[in-house]
Nucleic acid binder design. Structure first.
Length: 568
RNA sequence: GUCCCCGUAGCUCAGCCGGAUAGAGCAUCGGUUUCCUAAACCGAAGGCCGCACGUUCGAAUCGUGCCGGGGACGCCA
């Protein structure tokens, strides 16, 4: 990355590395600085044990020598025992942070890359439940983060609108479907049918055959009755999904279900065959992957001749490669599909497709209920809309209690409720399983979305009352902010957190950074009176700090998909 | 049985490209409102970082094994 693009503390880190690299004759890029735990130890540090070993002296000697030798503008090097600590000058730091955070460019990157991002991907004919929240919210945040870092992102919603489940649904409809119930509440009725199918199929083997027959029809007949049914189901589901996406502020460049690749399936299978990787096993068409270290083969066609999940994902991957020539193709899909992604990447590799390496599965942990597993088949679902509704209702109650005169109460309640749910999901590392706990999801205190929203609203309130025109960092006397280093350090680490979130595909890195910023912000305006502090220049400088704080919180919340009301 | 993920304070988690006395939030106890929103702030208490061995000057962090939890393992997606 070009040095000019570094912002906040990153720019100081680059200078430190360069000076240190010169002093010890090493490539600056190969050096890594650590962030000291203790605030008094400065903003960056290096341990001198290895250098001492190389030189045959002891670490404190090396640290002392380097502390004397190294000169960095705006940074003091200090030896503390075997450590070399670097302290950034408060005034210069404040100036740098304000220059960045008062512009809209703060945290922008230059990682020009074409990135395809598949996420959300709910199944047609089933309501969205809490499990879909993770893929949706993680994917949407990741898309915005990567865009900020310079990626050209293509968001794809890979709807589960194909497969044998639709055979089951059609069979169920033909047996028990009710037009009136469908019109009243399409997805609920379809879910009832789906559940009933699974209840009855064990005692009624004929049902299974009907389902297989129906899916087969769907895949072969162009405009049969079965296809018309499928189309109705799809449209009805999509309408319901749109409501949730609107609420969550999620959008896609393409909503393409698995069916979108339907007419590419045949040529895909032919292509696989021409690559010489297809073989028959127990009547099915498979790709053997034992040489790739995977015991289970990739199933491409069933013994009945119908396609499978992997077939459609292979077709989709190839189609996307042709269409987007991506540098990265990311899939935000639950970790239970780890094997599937290993298989289908390995299958592409076997065909000699080097771009298979650009495919990256971004797994996340399951949501489980405290009382047991969620299961669509058994009808045990926790609807996403229900979770959102309850959060928003509670937010409305909280407003009624804490700020009853707030204008536009309903809309603010919606923002807070959604913010609580979304942030709760994004603050945890995505790989970890989550036990769904109402008490936690509906909490508005502590490390929560509403806490960040509240801090943001407080800033807005101060700025509103200041009634001052836009602040220019060039006119700020930053020496007056020397006493606000904690806040400036927290804000200064924001660009780095953003890059880490992108690199690790981990929105929680950004979420955690925002929590530290909010905490520093609350301490700031607790100790430092802004309006009417008695000094015009001081007030201006503090208003600049509050503006920077408000901007960064607003920006970070926006990237995560958490609304940021100006009052609450 | 094989493979993958997780195991840090009573609870939920951060820290994990190894480094200086292991950090938050919730819950508990105590304090702060004539002062820019108390959805906040301050303080107290709370930890063989699952266990063992290994690598290293140094391990919560890396490796191996074990234990515990979750998941996956050909015609579902």
């Amino acid at each position: 990355m070009l040095k000019e693009n570094l912002q906040g503390l990153d720019s100081f880190a680059a200078n430190v590395k360069e000076a240190l690299g010169n002093a010890i004759e090493q490539e600056p890029a190969s050096l890594s600085l650590e962030i000291p735990r203790e605030e008094s130890h400065g903003e960056f540090a290096v341990a001198c044990f290895q250098m001492a070993q190389a030189e045959g002296t002891d670490p404190p000697t090396v640290a002392k020598r380097l502390a004397k030798e190294i000169e960095i503008p705006g940074v003091t090097a200090e030896a503390v025992g075997p450590f070399l600590n670097f302290k950034v000058d408060s005034e210069i730091l404040a100036q740098t942070v304000l220059e960045g955070a008062l512009t809209s460019k703060y945290g922008k990157g230059e990682e020009h890359a074409a990135t395809v991002l598949e996420f959300s991907s709910p199944n047609i004919a089933k309501p969205m439940h809490v499990g879909h929240l993770r893929s949706t919210v993680i994917g949407a945040a990741l898309a915005r983060i990567l865009m900020r870092l310079g990626h050209r992102v293509t968001r794809i919603n890979h709807l589960g609108d194909w497969g044998s489940q639709f055979g089951k649904l059609v069979a169920a409809w033909n047996n028990w479907g009710n037009e009136k119930s469908f019109l009243e509440s399409p997805i609920n009725h379809l879910l009832e049918l789906y559940v009933r199918f699974h209840e009855e199929e064990t005692d009624n083997p004929d049902l299974k055959d009907q389902a297989k027959e129906a899916f087969s029809e769907l895949e072969t007949e162009e405009d049969g009755e079965t296809r018309q049914l499928w189309q109705r189901f799809t449209e009805a589901s999509l309408q319901e999904f749109e409501q949730i996406y609107n609420r969550l502020g999620v959008s896609f460049e393409h909503i393409r279900g698995e069916s979108w690749y339907e007419n590419q399936l045949e040529s895909l299978v032919e292509w696989l065959d021409s690559c010489g990787v297809l073989e028959e096993s127990e009547g099915a068409q498979i790709i053997d992957l034992t040489e790739q270290g995977i015991d289970t083969p990739c199933l491409v066609k069933t013994a009945h001749g119908t396609t499978l999940y992997a077939t459609r994902d292979l077709a989709a991957a190839r189609s996307r490669w042709k269409e987007f020539s991506f540098d990265h193709s990311l899939y935000v899909v639950g970790s239970e599909q780890n094997l599937h992604f290993r298989q289908f990447k390995a299958a592409l590799s076997r065909c000699g497709e080097a771009w298979a390496e650009k495919i990256e599965h971004i797994p996340f942990g399951l949501i489980r209920m405290a009382g047991g597993k969620l299961s669509t088949r058994e009808g045990k679902v926790l609807l996403l809309s229900e979770v959102l509704d309850r959060a928003c209702e509670l937010a409305a109650e909280t407003i009624a209690e804490k700020n009853p005169d707030l204008p536009d109460r309903e809309s603010v309640a919606e923002k807070i409720g959604l913010g609580a749910v979304i942030f709760h999901d994004l603050k945890h590392q995505r790989q970890k399983d989550v036990v769904f706990d109402w008490k936690e999801v509906l909490s508005f205190e502590g490390d929560t979305g509403p806490y960040l929203q509240y801090t943001h609203a407080r800033c807005c309130s101060i700025l509103r009352k200041a009634n001052s025109p836009s602040i220019s960092s060039a006119e700020v006397d930053s020496s007056l902010l020397s006493d606000s280093k904690e806040l400036m350090v927290a804000l200064g680490r924001y660009p780095g957190a953003l890059r880490e979130a992108g690199r690790k595909r981990e929105p929680s890195a950004l979420a955690q950074s925002l929590l530290r910023i909010a905490s520093a912000g609350n301490a700031f305006y607790r100790d430092k009176r802004v309006l009417g502090c008695g000094d015009e220049n001081l007030e201006y400088a503090r208003l600049a700090a509050v503006t920077a704080l408000r901007n960064v919180l607003a920006d970070g919340l926006h990237l995560l998909g958490v609304p940021a009301p100006e009052e609450m």
